[in-house]
Structures are given as structure tokens and as C-alpha cells.
Design a protein around this nucleic acid. Sequence first.
DNA 1: AGCACGCCGACT
DNA 2: GTCGGCGTGCTC
Length: 807
Amino acid sequence: MSNTVQVIVNIPARSLDKPFSYTIPAHLANVQVGCRVLVPFGNRKVEGFIISLEPEKTEGLKSILEILDHVPWFDSNMLNTARWLSDYYLCSLSEAMRLFIPGQSGIKTQKAYQAPASVDFEQAAVLLSKKPAEFRTLLTYIYEHGPVTLTDLAKLTSDPAAMIKFFLQHKLIISADIVSKRGKASVTTIIDLAVSRETAAQIEQTLPKNKAAQRRLLNALLAAPGNLTTAQLRSLSITQDTVKKLAEQGLITTRQLPLFRNSYAGGCLQTPAVNLTPEQAYALGLIIPAINTGLHTSFLVHGVTGSGKTLVYIRAVAEARRLNRQAIVLVPEIALTSQIVARFKAAFGEDVVVMHSKLSVGERHDAWRRLQAGQAGIVIGARSALFAPAGQLGLIIIDEEHEFTYKQEETPRYHAREVALARARLAGAVVVLGSATPAVETYYKARQGDHVFIPMNQRVDNTPMPEVTVVDMRQELAQGRRSVISQALKDMLTEILARQEQAVILLNRRGYSTFVLCRECGHVLKCPHCDIALVYHASATVLRCHYCRERHTVPDICPVCSSRYIRYFGAGTQKVEEALAAAFPAARIIRMDQDTTGGKMAHDKILSAFAAGTYDILLGTQMVAKGHDIPNVTAVGIISADTALNLPDFRAAEKTFALLTQAAGRAGRGKKSGRVVMQTYNPEHYAIIAGAGHNYQAFYQHEITFRRQLHYPPYANLVKITVHGADEITVHRNANQLAADLTQAPGLADAAVIGPFPASVNKIKDIFRVNILIKTQELPTVAKQLAGLGLASRRDIIVDIDPINVL
DNA sequence: AGCACGCCGACT
DNA sequence: GTCGGCGTGCTC
């Protein structure tokens, strides 16, 4: 029997990315791999994760202090997924494991101070004699009141920190962490008699009158056939203290049991008996048998907007639940996808757990406990839901798999799709990726046979795809029309408003104008902390930086040449709103962007008001293009279809195509057919043409050729290395040095090192950033090499595997 | 991440 | 002479 364990401490520091060994004290012998434990670490107490049991004994190890989980939090699938993630994305194992824990840690530690085991009072007196009387008072207080925190002491003295430092230095006090557990474990305490019923009955008789509570407890145990639970104790008004006393006398025993309730599996399916379309039936004909095999398979459902993908998801989840396996459903943004959440709730009721970004740590904990205990079988949420403790995982669904929100932009910089595939592979689970505009990488993999490809080309209600008009804005200008709203868009809106139908207008830019320029000297007003133009917000008459959110007043004169000719250029949502209001004074217009959705769930309120017909026109940034399905919307206008197209990013075309397709898909979801007007300065661009023609194939063919020629994903993997810092010169020097080192590195012989080049937004919040890009066919080799160079441990370097943004 | 130990400048 | 700066190095 092993008495040693390997522990990963939950501290996200590169230098601690290795297991530490501890011994198991006899009374904690039931500890298992995957449990969280409290361990002594240096002079503090930290949370650790047990990753293995070790057979050999080593001398001089410390012991585990406490077990924080009665049931291991990590099963082998979760542990192996974390291992995979840390390998692939070059983060520490603890960083990867933290993803699986609500609030990133199961404990809260507070520093406290107390008397050391022994004090040399003579020496203490000498030391204190040189100090103000305050020192003596504080030290006495600490000695008398046991472990006290800094906040406690702050009530006594104005500045205890300096004195504490002095005391620690001279070993007059020691620090001792006060640890509190977060999230109550769902366990119940079971109390049993430890002696025969006869003995217990005898003792009960002999107990004196002042031990009435103990008598009550014994009586209750004698009356009950087997045992008692804590819940039953409460009704008998017996306290924990009484239980403890009797346990000390050896009359009773206590043990803790995890709370397991029956799962809803199979019992709760209220899936309405809708007729499946032939395409839905075909899709499920492939997916359901795969779930039944219990082997890992992945599918790409390429379904046009309105083709009924959600019903396929629901039926697939129902099948997994029938087999008593759990399902994870990922959506890009929970706030924008309330319709899909509502449909799952309707179909599966209490079996669904919704992971909200607004949930508190406690609520998150409760939700995950329910899954872990098998009380719920389905989790639906944003990318973090991927780390749910689903022990019986059978299915992962990723809706709108092409969405960039699936990529986490802080360390660990994982992509939910890739982690889902890895976790499912390890669990023998099925993955269903769904999208109307699959990521080029995903589609390519499907064609290679890595995913089973399922096309869904027909809309459920057989409404035709909307008719799209592309407006060349250069011609508009040539014909003397200078409005942001073209004649074609204006005509379309006039028509549908006359018919009391509704329109959605998309503009990928907040604020009033894109930049503010002095016409005299050409100076563009920029944020002093970020290298980016300030945006004019008319409603508040301020200039705002969209990176650091700082507000600036609008200057009357140019700060450079003192000219009064300051003009606003480009159009934001506010300006378009103004233009629409001028063109259609009778129309009721509502704007939806980050500025108007400040309050929580404001998306929902705006959308439901619009759906209810309170407004005629919904105008907003890309959030108006997502998720909702409003039958009376028959027209969609896209003010500037090429906003994203001109970015120097190899995914610019893909972003544009996906947004256009999605926005167009909002038109004509009901019985009425829809129309779309796309305004652009690049009407001949393949992303615009394909977007207008609802032609994914045409887009893909163009795009994949371009990717192949330039060795971009999926033909190579990218690694982006960002060097950042407050001093521009140092940052550039370090980046140059690093690029030179990388070019020399033996493991990178077959990789292309590009750069360094300054990030597109060179400075954000006074921090300068320079990027180096690596293109490689051999990512694992390169990753090993980068890890070997110690890049991940440098504080001024960010390593991003498979970056979404290369700018 | 913390925290200790350790070696060089400005003060009671 | 001491206090204190934060540069390395360690934590089972």
C-alpha cells in the first residue's frame, strides 16, 4: 500500500510546474488520485491536486494536512485532458487543472500571525527596548490572541505591516495560514452505533440528567433501524458537539457519504414529436449509432441558417442521456444564445445546468457538484463549460464552431474546439461541430476524413435563402449620393416599413465616427496610452478609446497646429442611427451595441422588445447578427460589408464571409422571404461574392488555395510570440534577440520565423507589444523547443499556439 | 506566487 | 554603524 503521493500545487508559476511528494498520514488513508488536498508548502498552506500514488518511500517528506474532496474532483479523463492541454498550449499543469475548478481554487487563504513554539524572552526584551511602546502592545496582543490576521491588527494600530515585518525578522512571531474551504461539498454525515444495541441501551439508562442531549441521540439511534444523518439530527436538536462527545467515548462512529441522487437519465425526455426533415434524419442516422458505440467519433454538421441544427443537437443529447452518459453543449456567448438554452431547458428541464459568466463562484460550484453527482446530465455554456466534471461524458456539441470566442485570449490560450476533441478522444465520446460557415481548418479536416461530414442544405420551412443585393459604394458616391445609407438600402427599408415588417441593420463599429482628424494638418486624435484613434461618441459628446475605455473631451482646436478645422470621419452605429432617423422619421429604431447593453442581460431585453414589434429597425454591431430568429424580420442591411476585409490578417476574408452569411441568415426566417442589401467598396472580392451568393463552397475553394500557397493553417500551424513591456526600446531589443535565437534553434530548422514586427495596435495601456510569428508543419517539435528555451517562464513573453489574431 | 537570504546605497 | 532596496533561489 502506497503511503506517498505526487501533488501539483495550485500556484500558477512556471517554476512550480512539477510534482511534489508528500506522505499520507494514517487518518487520511482514503485519499485518492484526483482529490484536492491541503499541503504545507514552505511556510504556507496551499491547495494541491493529487496526480498519482507512489509506491516508494522517501525520507524527509512533509505530510498532507487535509483532504478537500471526499470524491476525487478530477477523474482520469479530466486529468488527462489537463495534461494534454498543458503539453499542447505550453502552460503549466496547474494552470490547466485550474480550468476545471470553479473560481480557480477550492480554498481561500488568509495570512495570520502567532507566537512561535518557543520565545527567547530576554532577547525579545532587548529588541523591544529600542522600539516604541506600540511594538510591545502589538506583540502582547498577538501572543494572547493566537493566530490573528493583518486586518485584525489594523484595527489596533494604523500601520501594523512594518511591525509585523520586524517581528518576523527577529523570529518573535511566525506566520500561519488560515485556510477556509470554498463551496460546500455535497456530503452527508452518517452516524452509526459502535457498540451493540444492548450495551448502548444500558449506557443510555446510566447517563446522568445533565447529559440529556446524549441520551436523545442514543435513543434515536436505538429507535432507528440503522443509522442517522445530519439532517435528522437537526430535527432532534442535537448538535455536532454531542456527536463528538459520544464519538470520543467510542459509542458511535461517523462517516461521510457523498450525496448521490438518481439521475434524470431517460426519464425526462419531453422532446416534442416533430417530424424530422430528411436531412435531420440523415444526420441523426449517423450520430446516434456513433454515440451507441461508445467510441470517439467527430462530426461536422454544415447546416445553412434555419436548417434545424438545434433539433439535431437535442436528439443527439437525448440519445446520450438514454445511455446514461453526460453531454456538454458549447455556445459562443451565452447572453446571445438564449434561444438555444431555452430549447434545451424545454426539452430536458432540471437535467440541464446552464453555465453563465455571471454566476458566482458558489453557484458555479453547486452547478458542477450537481453534474459530478450525476444529478444533472447536461451542461450548456460558453467555452469554460468544457471543463465541467462530467464523469460519464458521452457527447460534446460545439454550436457555431467557427466562432473566435472559442479561443481564450488569456493564458492558457486554448481553443475550445481542440480541447473538446482531445477530451472526447480520451473519454470515448462523440463530438458534433455545427456551423453554417465552418472554420476553414475544420472544413479541411472534414474533407480529409478527420470529421464525418454532414451537409444540411435545406431550410426547415423551405423558405428560400434571402435575395442579396450588393451595392458598390464607389458608384453611389460617383452618382453624388454621400449618405451612409445607399439608395438600394433606403428603397428596401421604405418598402418593408410600409408592410409593417422589420429590419436588422448591421454595422461593425461602435460610436459615432471612426476617427477625428484635423483638416489643416492631418493630425488624427489618438489615445495617449494606446496606439489607436479615438472614437467620437455623440450621445455623451466625448472621445473614447475602445481599448482602455478612457474618455477624453473633444478639443476645440487641434492640439498640434491649433486649427479649428476638426472633422469627424467614418461612421459608427450612433451616426447611422442618426442617418436612419433622418431618412425614416416615423420608424422606431433601437440600437444594440456595447454602449447600450451595459446592464446585465440587456441583450435579451432589447431583442425581446424588438421581437415583440416595439421597434421597426434593430441597428447594431455584430451581436445583431447572432442567435435570434424573428419571423417578421424580412430585411437585413449591412452598412459596410468590408470592415474586417481590409485588416492585415490572414483570416480577414473568413471573418467577413462568416459575418455576412450570418447576418443574411437573419432575413426571412418565417413564412415571408427575406432580402439583404450589402454595401461595400470591394464588390469583386470573393468573400463578398460568395457571401452574397450563400456559397460556402466557392468561398472555401478560393480561401483554401490562398492558404495553401502561403502555408497558412490548415497547411501549417502558427505560433505567435509577443514580447511586451513598458519600455519600447527594451521590448524591441528583446524581440530582436529572441527572433535571432529562434532562427538559430536546431528544433526550428524547418520552421519559418517571421518578424519581429510591432503589433497592429503597437501600444495598449502604455504597454508596447512586438510579435514574432512561427509557421511550422511540426508543431510538437517546435513546442518542445520553445519550452526548452524557457519562453513560457518569461514574464515579458506570451506564447500563443494557434493564434486567432496574428496582428 | 511568496518568502527568505543576500549583497550594496542613504539615513536614524 | 543600521535600514532597506529588490536580485536569485527554493518550496516535497
